[in-house]
Simulated scan of single mutants.
Amino acid sequence: MTITQLNYVLAVAEHQNFTLAAEKCFVTQPTLSMQIQKLEDELDVKIFDRNKKPIQLTEVGRQIVIQAKNIVNESDRIKDIVDQQKGFIGGEFKLGIIPTITPTLLPMFLTNFINKYPKVNLVIEEYNTEEIIYKLKNGQIDAAIAATPLLEQDIKEIVLYYEPFVGYIPEDFRNNKVEIEPEDLDINDILLLKDGHCFRNGILNICKSSKTDPNRKFELTSGSFETLIKLSNEGLGVTLLPYLHSLSLNDIDKKNIIPFKDPKPSREVSLIYFKSELKSHIIDALRNVISGVVRGAIAFQDVKIISPKLKK
């Protein structure tokens, strides 16, 4: 049994296809298949049911994959120990980011990070929170930036900053207010991001009531803040934005930004990673760079953290 064979098994388990797994492992499909067959012969079991499409794990195969992940992680830890001893910060690092953070945070730290750590091949992938949790637990990404707390077993969280929600409220909906409170929000006036966005859950958790009016003329959810802002400008409702997103608005749209009274409802943004702490030296480097650039842009103290998970 070899680490290489276990990596091949994990690739097939992830992609459910021998050809695609071979491509991801940079080997030919016959080579990958032969090594997995040798492992199955050695163990005298079938890891995969090849008669099903897509390929499925057998019952014992599922148990083998769980153990294989642990073994591969521990072997990778040896490389981490050596890299840290040598002071080397490099190699591929897969970072997941939720969509409502990517457009504001990424431009703030990416250039700084790649200039400071040119030997790190940073692969950035955008996923919603549920996808990030799944991929972290299955070793498909090394770390992620997401709204927390998630309270997920085996996932560690390092808080990077607290980002207040702000109201995007055109004059027709403002009622002469210069600050708002959660009680001022009517769910029937609010334009929301589509399901799957934890920012949407945060808005619903802020609102006193999540019941919609059955006589409402229309209901729309969107995947982008830009669409929600344009609809608000047309008088079709209001929305909430992350504070950092509001900084990039044009001068006309900025006039529609209304802050919350203290304590400001806010999201906690963290660097999260699996408990094995693989590539911890790169995680520390990311945390230091991001904390350094964000500290100058956002410094709110009196905040109330809103859960990224929808209240039941």
Rank of each mutant, 00 (worst) to 15 (best):
N205F: 13
V289A: 01
L286F: 08
K255E: 15
K275D: 11
L220V: 15
G223C: 08
I252M: 09
L249H: 07
K279N: 06
N201W: 04
S232Y: 03
G235W: 00
K230W: 09
F199Y: 10
S209N: 14
N250Y: 05
T221P: 09
P265G: 02
G235K: 03
S224V: 05
S248F: 10
H197Y: 15
L286S: 04
L240G: 01
G235H: 01
L228K: 12
K255W: 10
D262R: 04
R216W: 00
I272Q: 03
G202C: 15
K254P: 01
L236R: 04
E234T: 06
L278F: 03
C207Q: 11
L271M: 10
S266A: 14
Y243H: 09
K261H: 11
Y243E: 02
I283H: 03
I282G: 03
N256P: 00
P265M: 01
N250W: 07
L220I: 15
K275C: 08
S222M: 12
K255S: 15
I257F: 07
I282R: 01
T212S: 13
D262L: 05
I252N: 10
V238I: 15
R267Y: 10
E268G: 09
S280D: 08
N233D: 12
H281E: 01
T239P: 07
K279V: 04
G196S: 07
S276T: 14
F274G: 03
L278A: 02
L241D: 00
K211S: 13
N288T: 11
L236H: 04
T221Q: 15
S280A: 11
L286E: 03
L271W: 09
K264R: 15
K261Q: 11
D213K: 07
L236G: 01
D253P: 01
E226H: 13
S266E: 07
K264L: 12
S280I: 12
G235C: 04
V289Q: 01
N205K: 14
S222H: 12
R287L: 06
V238Q: 07
S210I: 10
